Simulated scan of single mutants.
Amino acid sequence: MTEETRYATLDCHYVPHDLVLTDIGPDPLAVTRAYAAIASLGLWRAKQAVTATPPVTFVLGLPESDVLKLVHRLREAGATADAVPQTGS
């Protein structure tokens, strides 16, 4: 009987990111509307999430490019938001 050796290549370029809202800025309604559109929520639920004590982590474990698009939408509405890489636990 012969042993078979298998090798695998791991792709470590994918690091999941989170969307973190650190400040809702001067126009909370605009940020609430932007978040409601992103999360497919009603305004009431979006307002509850947006006005929670910052920092608020909204989106978990997406590719960096996707999170950066969402960060851009929130920043256009006046919020301070960042794409934060997840750390391995």
Score class of each variant (00 low, 15 high):
residue 9 T to R: 11
residue 9 T to K: 13
residue 10 L to T: 14
residue 11 D to E: 13
residue 12 C to E: 15
residue 13 H to T: 08
residue 13 H to R: 13
residue 15 V to T: 06
residue 17 H to L: 14
residue 18 D to K: 10
residue 18 D to T: 13
residue 19 L to D: 06
residue 19 L to W: 06
residue 19 L to Q: 05
residue 19 L to Y: 01
residue 20 V to D: 01
residue 21 L to H: 11
residue 22 T to N: 07
residue 23 D to K: 05
residue 23 D to T: 02
residue 23 D to S: 12
residue 24 I to A: 09
residue 25 G to R: 12
residue 26 P to W: 08
residue 27 D to K: 02
residue 27 D to G: 04
residue 28 P to K: 09
residue 29 L to Y: 01
residue 30 A to P: 00
residue 30 A to G: 04
residue 30 A to H: 02
residue 30 A to W: 03
residue 31 V to R: 05
residue 31 V to Q: 01
residue 32 T to L: 05
residue 32 T to S: 10
residue 32 T to C: 10
residue 33 R to G: 05
residue 33 R to L: 01
residue 33 R to E: 00
residue 33 R to M: 00
residue 34 A to N: 04
residue 36 A to T: 05
residue 37 A to I: 00
residue 37 A to L: 05
residue 37 A to M: 04
residue 38 I to N: 11
residue 38 I to F: 11
residue 39 A to T: 01
residue 39 A to V: 02
residue 39 A to D: 04
residue 39 A to P: 06
residue 40 S to I: 02
residue 40 S to L: 13
residue 41 L to Q: 08
residue 41 L to A: 00
residue 41 L to N: 02
residue 41 L to S: 01
residue 42 G to A: 01
residue 43 L to Y: 13
residue 44 W to L: 12
residue 47 K to E: 14
residue 47 K to M: 04
residue 47 K to R: 13
residue 48 Q to V: 00
residue 48 Q to A: 07
residue 48 Q to C: 05
residue 49 A to L: 15
residue 50 V to P: 10
residue 50 V to Y: 07
residue 50 V to M: 12
residue 51 T to P: 03
residue 51 T to Y: 03
residue 51 T to E: 08
residue 51 T to S: 11
residue 51 T to A: 08
residue 52 A to P: 07
residue 52 A to S: 13
residue 52 A to E: 09
residue 52 A to H: 03
residue 53 T to C: 08
residue 53 T to K: 12
residue 54 P to N: 03
residue 54 P to L: 12
residue 54 P to S: 00
residue 54 P to V: 09
residue 56 V to D: 12
residue 56 V to C: 13
residue 56 V to W: 13
residue 56 V to I: 15
residue 57 T to L: 11
residue 58 F to R: 14
residue 58 F to T: 09
residue 59 V to R: 05
residue 59 V to T: 09
residue 59 V to G: 01
residue 60 L to P: 03
residue 62 L to I: 08
residue 64 E to H: 15
residue 65 S to I: 03
residue 65 S to W: 06
residue 65 S to G: 07
residue 66 D to M: 06
residue 67 V to M: 09
residue 67 V to Y: 13
residue 68 L to Y: 03
residue 69 K to I: 00
residue 69 K to S: 01
residue 69 K to V: 07
residue 70 L to H: 00
residue 70 L to Q: 04
residue 70 L to R: 02
residue 71 V to E: 06
residue 71 V to L: 09
residue 72 H to C: 06
residue 72 H to L: 04
residue 72 H to E: 15
residue 72 H to F: 07
residue 73 R to A: 10
residue 73 R to N: 04
residue 73 R to T: 10
residue 74 L to V: 05
residue 75 R to Y: 10
residue 75 R to H: 13
residue 76 E to V: 06
residue 76 E to I: 02
residue 76 E to S: 09
residue 76 E to D: 13
residue 76 E to F: 01
residue 77 A to P: 04
residue 77 A to G: 02
residue 78 G to S: 10
residue 78 G to F: 07
residue 78 G to N: 06
residue 79 A to V: 12
residue 79 A to M: 11
residue 80 T to P: 00
residue 81 A to W: 08
residue 82 D to R: 06
residue 82 D to K: 06
residue 83 A to V: 01
residue 83 A to E: 12
residue 84 V to N: 03
residue 84 V to T: 07
